[in-house]
C-alpha cells in the first residue's frame, strides 16, 4: 500500500472539524478522484499527504512510513517523492516556462546537466515544446497548468497530487488536462485528484472517493461511479 489513513480527524484551532474519522487506502499506480462539495475536507486531506497539515487524531502512512511522527527535517524527502499541481497553477510570474520547471529541480539541488536534459523532455511531454522562453502571463490557462504539471513531474515523483487542477479551466481545456493526467498515470505514477467536476469523473471510469462533511460517504472502484 502506498497511502494509508487510519481514523484520521482534523479539527482546526477555530473549532472547524474538517475531517472526521477518515480511513482509506490507496495502492501504487492507482488513479483516484476525491469528490465532494466545497468544505467537505478534500483540501485538508490533500494537504495532509504532503504534511502541510498534521491530523489532530489518527495515523497516516505513506510508503509504510508514519508521516504524523515524522521529524521536521524529514519532510523535504517526503515532498520530493510527490508532485503537486495547484488550482491556481502557482507559477512564478517573473520566470520563463523553462525556468519555472527548472526551478523545481534547482531547489532540490539537481545537477545542472540533469536539469538541461530533463526540462526540455518534460516540456515536450506536456505539449509545450517551443514555449520555453514564454512567461506565464503570455500563456493560456490550459498551457499554464501544463507548466504546473511539468514542474510537478520534474523530480520523478511516486505520486502526483492535484487539487482542483481544472478548477480554473473551461471544459475543453479540462479534458485535455485530464488526458495528460491519464497518460502520466499510465506511465506508472499514482495520481490523486480532488475535484467537484462531476462530468469529468463520470466519463473517467476510475476509482472515486466521496467526502461529505469530513466523512468518507462513498468509495467506488474503477468504473462503478455512475452518478
Amino acid at each position: 500500500m502506498l497511502i494509508q489513513f487510519y481514523n484520521v480527524s482534523k479539527i482546526y484551532p477555530n473549532g472547524v472539524k474538517a475531517l472526521d474519522d477518515v480511513s482509506l487506502k490507496i495502492d501504487r499506480g492507482e488513479f483516484v478522484f476525491l469528490m465532494g462539495p466545497s468544505g467537505a475536507g478534500k483540501s485538508t486531506l490533500i494537504k495532509m499527504l504532503f504534511r502541510e497539515e498534521k491530523p489532530t487524531r489518527g495515523q497516516i502512512f505513506i510508503a509504510s512510513r508514519s508521516i504524523v511522527r515524522m521529524k521536521r527535517k524529514e519532510i523535504p524527502a517526503l515532498r520530493r517523492s510527490m508532485g503537486i499541481v495547484f488550482q491556481d497553477f502557482k507559477l512564478l510570474e517573473n520566470k520563463t516556462v523553462y525556468e519555472n520547471v527548472a526551478f523545481a529541480m534547482e531547489v532540490v539541488g539537481a545537477k545542472p546537466n540533469d536539469i538541461k536534459y530533463r526540462v526540455p523532455e518534460l516540456l515536450k511531454m506536456v505539449g509545450l515544446k517551443g514555449k520555453e522562453k514564454c512567461f506565464p502571463g503570455e500563456l493560456s490557462g490550459g498551457e499554464q497548468q501544463r507548466v504546473g504539471i511539468a514542474r510537478a513531474l520534474a523530480n520523478q515523483p511516486m505520486v502526483l497530487i492535484a487539487d482542483e487542477p481544472t478548477g480554473n479551466l473551461d471544459v475543453d481545456t479540462s479534458c485535455e488536462i485530464m488526458e495528460l493526467l491519464y497518460d502520466i498515470n499510465r506511465r506508472g505514477t499514482t495520481v490523486i485528484m480532488a475535484t467537484h467536476a462531476r462530468e469529468l469523473v463520470r466519463n473517467a471510469h476510475k476509482r472515486v472517493i466521496i467526502l461529505e462533511k469530513g466523512k468518507v460517504v462513498g468509495d467506488y472502484p474503477n468504473g462503478e461511479f455512475l452518478a
Binding site: F50, E52, R72, K73, I75, P76, A77, L78, R79, R80, M82, I84, K90, L92, F103, A104, V107, V108, G109, R151, N155
Partner: peptide, 17 residues
C-alpha cells in the same frame, strides 16, 4: 512568500531556502 511556499512544497530544505 509565494516562492518560498512553493519551494517548501517542492521539497527544498530549510537551509536551502
Amino acid at each position: 512568500r509565494k516562492e518560498i511556499y512553493l519551494m517548501k512544497l517542492i521539497g527544498a530544505t530549510d537551509w536551502f531556502i
